[in-house]
Design a protein around this nucleic acid. Structure first.
Lengths: 339, 339
DNA sequence: TAGACTTATTAAAGTTCTTAAATAAGTGTC
DNA sequence: GACACTTATTTAAGAACTTTAATAAGTCTA
């Protein structure tokens, strides 16, 4: 039960914003057709938005045989978003506008320490005031499990355990806040930046210093799991005596750029095959600093020993940090659009 | 973009039907509060529905201090649904009403043969005419992959390959039709009959004569896979030299009720562990004719060798045919409610 | 360059929902 | 059993969107 008549105004406003940002610019007729909202209504909304400075007129279209239509575009500077990701070594943040352009980028000492929340609060406060309070959303990425803005489980940082970061900051700053796990943000970011279609399933796979993990997006939704354990792929049994995590290590600790041995390839190929037999995803993404084209090829060959190759997903590599950041921006953008 | 102002009437009507069926009965105030639609509007809709015979008044509530409220209930006989499932040995069908009561049950020879579609058409025609044309939805279950009503892949029955069953019958009978894969229908049926919460992930696992398979429901959606290969779990690599399908067979063909050997248990436990490490589902359902309590216990113990037991899902058994049928009814019901 | 033709925008009238006020139908008390 | 008090329902007025008609602003052609 999501649609109530009362929320119509909001729905229309959101969808106008969304379309305008998606299309870059649009005429009233285009919006009316696309959104299935009558011309006069679109006209009324756009008039108000132009008055508020939220959209700007960008001239007239070429005539298609009759009167030329006015074209409108979103004013990207009208609202800004703040994306922060917390890591054990440092805290990164960016300020971005509605079209995804990064306006400002910065670093700060890590806040994943005792009393770190106050540090984080101070940081955000400073950022907001130095930006004329134009910040209209905050997206925070954390290396842990998140349930609706509450940090559920963040191994190593028990002081954040069970803390409702979203609720705390929404109350404190009166700005919409979203908190998301790093992998989930990355998978979301990849989906949007690479123009994957809705409802296609994605898997983001990393090996990492602290063991492997994966983020899933199935039918367009992030998969968290009933106990927030989804993606802990090191536990997947793969050989008579070894699971995926153990197979990767195989005695020696895995360093960066050392996915090269055949037993690594086979373990990963088996995991890929497992993903296909269960989820049959459209694409699997590896972190580009852990992967190269050649190994990707070997994995493709290796996987097809286990499953019919016509069902193999695309295998690709991508810049994890960038996807992560973009995912956070995306989440913040959604908040702004629906505000 | 799903909510258009034009569709308001439909949305309200659907949600009234849904609430009335869910609650059993309701007063106007209750509906107005629940649906966040104003009292006069609810009143107007109910008046029309009562006039149409779609709902009936079931008396007055006890007074809570003031005027007594009229209570309304859905007239279950107002619309009937037809659920058919096609199997290689026979064709089963049931006619059910809006509260899920089965009005009629029947069998017919299989239609999974050459020219079977005409047979099926005749069968449906006969059922519809002997029911005063009160049938308002048709749900068809098939043992194959389905994409939006089109049969995509049904091994062994190539004459149905790539046939748009939904489109064909919607055009022919002018009644909404839904076509769904057997596993997916079963998982849906289980979800609703057992009152699982929305957004909890479910896995239905069977071993079958033709090899094992699974149906997934993640975040409330059925998972089909990008090449409709999702659920083909026999391909999951599990041991140095064997995948799940091979491990189950282990030389001899698996008969019914013979999941008893330790190597069966271990293979299934590994598969369960794999599910947990990837999807972390809320529950895994086995077919009751292939499973019993004792084996279930053994699997629980076996799985916890591979993953922390606090993340183990509920393991349960259920009557597959019944869930399948109920899932089809559910799909048909949804069509009727939204019609 | 006037008139025929297109297309965009505005204005007016019609629907449908909401809110607020009025009425109906009860319960309970002195 | 009249009066105060509750709660359900109906009625009337107001708001927001849609449809249709009218007008404005172009293009194109003879």
């Amino acid at each position: 039960m999501n649609t109530t008549p009362k929320s119509l105004r909001k729905v229309i406003l959101s969808s106008i914003r969304k379309s305008l940002l998606e299309l870059g610019s649009a005429t009233k007729v285009e919006l009316s057709d696309k959104l299935e909202v009558s011309f006069p209504t679109i006209s009324k909304f756009l008039a108000q938005m132009e008055k508020d400075g939220e959209i700007i007129s960008v001239g007239l279209d070429e005539s298609s045989g009759g009167r030329r239509a006015k074209r409108y575009a979103y004013n990207p500077e009208h609202m800004l978003g703040l994306a922060i990701f917390l890591e054990s070594s440092e805290t990164n943040y960016t300020i971005f506008n509605c079209v995804g352009e990064v306006m400002e980028q910065g670093k700060a000492p890590t806040v994943l320490i005792d009393n770190g929340i106050n540090l984080l609060t101070k940081l955000i406060e400073k950022i907001i005031t130095t930006n004329d309070s134009k910040i209209r959303s905050i997206a925070i990425g954390v290396p842990g499990s998140v349930d609706n803005g509450r940090i559920f489980y963040m191994p190593g940082y028990e002081q954040f355990q069970n803390f409702d970061l979203k609720g705390y900051y929404e109350n404190y700053f009166s700005i919409p806040v979203v908190v998301e796990n790093d992998m989930n943000a990355a998978v979301l970011g990849f989906k949007h930046s690479k123009g994957t279609k809705d409802n296609q399933s994605l898997i983001y796979l990393y090996f990492g210093q602290n063991g492997p993990g994966a983020g899933f997006m199935i039918n367009g939704d992030v998969v968290r799991g009933s106990t927030f354990f989804a993606g802990e792929v090191s536990f997947v049994p793969q050989y008579n005596e070894r699971n995926f995590g153990q197979a990767l290590e195989n005695g020696s600790r895995l360093n960066k750029k050392t996915i090269s041995e055949d037993y690594h390839i086979d373990a990963i190929s088996r995991l890929v095959a497992t993903f296909v037999a269960i989820i049959n995803p459209y694409i699997i993404i590896f972190c580009s600093d852990e992967m190269d084209k050649e190994i990707l090829n070997k994995i493709t060959i290796g996987s097809s020993k286990y499953i019919p190759s016509e069902h193999l997903p695309k295998l690709t590599e991508s810049d994890w940090k960038q996807d992560y950041l973009y995912g956070l921006q995306r989440l913040g953008l959604d908040l702004m659009i629906n505000e």
